[in-house]
Write a protein that binds this DNA or RNA. Sequence first.
DNA 1: GAGAGGAATGTTATAATGTTTCAAATTCGC
DNA 2: GCGAATTTGAAACATTATAACATTCCTCTC
Lengths: 162, 162
Amino acid sequence: MSVSALPYRQHNHDACIADALADARAICQRQNARLTATRERVLELIWQSHRPLGAYDVLAMLAQDGHNAAPPTVYRALDFLQQYGLVHRIASLNAFIGCTHAGTRHQGMFLICQQCGNVLELSAPDVSDAIEGAAADVHFRPDSVAVEVSGYCPRCVDHKDE
Amino acid sequence: MSVSALPYRQHNHDACIADALADARAICQRQNARLTATRERVLELIWQSHRPLGAYDVLAMLAQDGHNAAPPTVYRALDFLQQYGLVHRIASLNAFIGCTHAGTRHQGMFLICQQCGNVLELSAPDVSDAIEGAAADVHFRPDSVAVEVSGYCPRCVDHKDE
DNA sequence: GAGAGGAATGTTATAATGTTTCAAATTCGC
DNA sequence: GCGAATTTGAAACATTATAACATTCCTCTC
C-alpha cells in the first residue's frame, strides 16, 4: 500500500518489490490463500519493473532460475495472483503488471506509455463514477471494468520526436 | 449514423447492416480509401450481429462464401476497417465489432454482456472527460483510450441465475 | 491503351499466446 | 499416518496474430 505512485520517477525499486511481496503475504494470510513458492516467485518477477510482462516472459525468467516450467504453471500462478488482486492483466498488451493498490477495493485505470513501456495504475473515482453512471443510463450492470489508456508519460512526452 | 443504440432490443438488424455499409462507402469515398470487395464483405460479416467476431470466425465465414482466404487477408481487412473507424477491436475478447459511431470523432466505451455476448458501444463524454482529467493530473498525454466494461445487459440481468 | 508504380491480395510458414487433460506430488484437517 | 483437496508437472493442442515474399490488380501518365 506504500508504493510510489509514479513508476517513471526515480525511486528505489527494490522497495517496491519488497513492499509488494510483504503486502501479498499479508493479504494471502488474511484470506487463507496459499502464496506458494512458485506464486511468490512469479509475483516477484512481475514486479521486477513497472513494465508489464507477458506470460512467456515470466516463463523464460523462471527457466533462468532453473525452474523448468510449462505454460500452465505460469498461467495458473497469474490466475491466482489476479484472483487475489495482486496483479492485473492488461488486455491490450496481453501482459501482466503488479497491482499498486493491492488489498484495497479499487477499479484500476492504466496509463501505458508507448515510448518507455511503463504503466501507471491509477485509482480514479471520477472515472469509475462516470462509467457507472453511463452504464446505469442504459440499464447495464457492470461487473468488471478495464480502462487502458495508451499515450505518453511525462518523461517521454517531451522526447517524443527524437 | 442512424444505428439503433440498443443491440439487445428488438430491431430490424438488416437495417443496421445496410446503414453500416452505406456509411462505410460514404466515409471511404470521402477519404479516397478503397473499400474493396473483400473489405466490404468482412465489414458485412462483422455486422451480422451485435456480438463481436474473432478474426478466425470471419475467416470461417469467408470460407463458406467459397473465398479460400488465409489469416493475413482477414487481419489486413480488419486493420483497414479499424483505420477508418469502421470497426473496433475489443482487446479483452480478441474480437471485432462494427462501430456504431463511424465517421464521428469519438472514443468508444464498450458494454459487454457476459450472458448474451452482445456489445453496446457508447459515446460517453463524461467518461472521456474524467479520463482526460485523471491523466492530466499526472501529466500523462493520452493517445488512445479503451474502456471495456463486462457485465449484464438489461435483458440478461434479470435472468442471470436461471 | 501500353506500361510504370503503387496498392492490395495470395500463399506459406511461423510466432506468440493461451488451454485441455490427466497424472503425480504436496498440503491440510483429522 | 490417512484420506481429501489443492497444487504442480508434463505433454499435447488450440487459438490468435505476424513475417516474408510472390503475384495480381488498379490508377495514372503519357
